[in-house]
Nucleic acid binder design. Structure first.
Lengths: 115, 115
DNA sequence: TTGACATATTCCCATATGGGAATGTAGTAT
DNA sequence: ATACTACATTCCCATATGGGAATATGTCAA
């Protein structure tokens, strides 16, 4: 088997940096494709392809407006990623505490240290 | 250009479901490779390859213990992902509020509704 | 209809997979 | 040295890219 499709889930879809840029850009408000092309400096077909991937995993939504298509980020779809990464929060807190403790030990050992 | 390397950053590394499983497994405490193989039911070479990817982007750390190698998750490396996804939190909150508002409107329109 | 505009799709290609199988390497024990 | 254990690497291959170029589709205007 090769690598999983970029459309297999949100984790794969956001692996591409340009798609993350697009998501950030479209989070503020809906925009036509042309705005994305102009603002992010990508080729139009490239943007369309990225939008398709994002749409297939539910990360963006689209509505038609005349001959334009207005896209916007569906933040709800990012939430599971935030929650999954959040399950590690207590671990990096512990790691930080350990670092702090060591720093405090050092301070006790070398009280003359410059602050 | 093809797709970015899985080792290009943490976003690409966690796109693979098995690597996410490994990260969760190794977050609790350090483990030898054999434990991962036994617990997650993957082939040993496959686990070694995934661990290499995770190590190259700093998501796991390793120390030798006799003939074993003990791996553990470096939660700090997951933090940037949590923070990036967190930038969308206010947006999904807004979306939720809108859903709630509409639900409340409905309740006013139909006060006889069963609760 | 014809034309212009906005977006999407298709085709081609270099590249990077992830799995399976086989092999390599390092550490330990005898 | 030999044998065994624990991991890592290599080779092969089917598959899925993402970019560029070209083309197709859809919408509005005259």
């Amino acid at each position: 088997m090769a690598r999983a499709a970029t459309t297999s889930d949100a984790f794969n879809a956001i692996a591409e940096p340009r798609r993350r840029d697009i998501l950030s850009y479209l989070a503020l408000r809906e925009r036509p494709v042309g705005d994305i092309v102009a603002s992010l400096g990508l080729e139009q077909p490239s943007v369309s392809k990225h939008l398709r991937v994002l749409r297939e995993v539910g990360l963006v939504e689209m509505r038609r407006d005349g001959r334009q298509k207005l896209y916007r980020t569906n933040a709800e779809a990012i939430r599971p990623l935030h929650e999954w990464t959040g399950t590690f929060e207590r671990f990096w807190r512990h790691q930080l505490n350990r670092v702090k403790e060591r720093a405090e030990e050092k301070t006790q050992v070398k009280p003359k240290e410059k602050v």
